[in-house]
Each structure stands twice: as C-alpha cells, then as structure tokens.
C-alpha cells in the first residue's frame, strides 16, 4: 500500500487559494471551517513564501495519541481519519496537532463545540464508502474512487503534491535538481520525522 503524504513546494505556491476553495466545494465544508489554508510567511517582504497547509496525516499522529476517546484511526494508506460518532469535541487534538488541522463547528465554550472536523485526505470516514451519511459527515471519498485529493489535483502551479510519499518526494527532488533550488518540504520533519534530501 502507498504511504500517502502532502508536499507543498513553497517556491511554486502563488497563494491563489484554489486548493482551499476546491476543498470547501468538494466536501461542502461550512463557512468558517478551513480544512486547508494557505499561510503566507514574511508577507510583503523579500523572500515571501506561501505554504498550503492542512492535516499532514502524520506518522504516529499526535492527535490520535492524545485523543481521550481514541476516535482516530489510520487507514492502510496511512491516512489519519477519525470517527465523529465517538469524538467528544474536547480539543486536545488541536493542542497536540503541529499543523492546526482540527477545527470545531462552534467556537464559543468548549462544552458544546461539536464534533471535530479536519482534512480527510479526501478519504471519507469510517462509514461505508460513498454513503450519504459518510458524505454528510466527512465529505466525498475520492480516494475510494481511485482519485487523489482535489486540492493537489487542481493546484494551478502544481505546488501542492499529494500521493505516495516516495513518489512525490521523487518529483520534488527532480524539480529541485532541475531548477537548482528549493526551500524544502515544509512540515515533513515535524510530521514524518524525515525530510526530502536534496
């Protein structure tokens, strides 16, 4: 099985936010919840870079470890998913997540903030594939259709890569060799405890 990862090539990302829009539209994510977001570093200064970030589907995911109800599970493709039926919305996963992925439908007091929502790598949830209930809770299941996450698929500059970790690392490496520079695979060290050697 593949080990699915995301890689954002910051030297290509133009902060168009198409990945964000694609994600919101594909999964009907409500207003105010952003499963994917684009963060601009050094905004307006020389050397400004933008990075598109969502759940990185970490190796040995911290969110899964701290969850007091063990609602997380990892699929055969190493995608980190969770069950909204078991989630109690305690927010520990947000504290543990290095990438700020988990979000909640309500933002006031923590007592009734609802079930956590995060990027599913377009892989749905524990419900049976393509069921209505799966779509309502987690969004569409493109992985089961044999497609990759929409954010990466429709990235206009192909900055955002999704797919098997080895394969996207290879693509990124070739790019770096060809163009002569690269600012690295953002977040890989934190998420996967490894980085793309250039």
């Amino acid at each position: 099985m593949a080990r699915m990862k995301f890689l954002c090539d910051a030297d290509r990302c133009i902060e168009c936010n198409a990945c964000v829009t694609a994600c919101k539209n594909e999964h009907e994510v409500p207003w105010g919840i952003n499963r994917r977001r684009v963060v601009t570093l050094n905004d307006g200064k020389p050397g400004e870079r933008s990075v598109s970030m969502a759940c990185m589907h970490c190796t040995d995911a911290p969110c899964a470890a701290v969850c007091p109800v063990n609602c997380f599970y990892t699929t055969a493709d190493a995608v980190v998913l969770h069950s909204k039926d078991i989630c109690i919305g305690c927010g520990y996963c947000f504290y543990a997540c290095p990438f700020g992925a988990p979000q909640y439908p309500k933002v006031g007091n923590f007592g009734s903030r609802g079930k956590m929502d995060k990027c599913t790598y377009c892989a749905g949830g524990p419900e049976s594939d393509f069921s209505t209930i799966e779509y309502e809770k987690y969004g569409s299941n493109r992985l089961a259709e044999g497609k990759l996450p929409l954010c990466a698929e429709m990235c206009s500059t192909k900055a955002l890569l999704a797919g098997d970790g080895e394969m996207i690392a290879q693509i990124y490496k070739q790019r770096v060799i060809k163009r002569g520079y690269g600012s690295g695979a953002w977040g890989w060290k934190t998420a996967y405890r490894e980085t793309v050697a250039i």
């Binding site: 910051a10 030297d11 570093l41 050094n42 020389p46 050397g47 400004e48 870079r49 520079y181 690269g182 600012s183 690295g184 953002w186 977040g187 060290k189």
Partner: peptide, 8 residues
Amino acid sequence: PTAESVNE
C-alpha cells in the same frame, strides 16, 4: 530566487 526566501 531562494537566496532571500524564508526556510523552515
């Protein structure tokens, strides 16, 4: 172009 750019 990455000479000045931010890195992790």
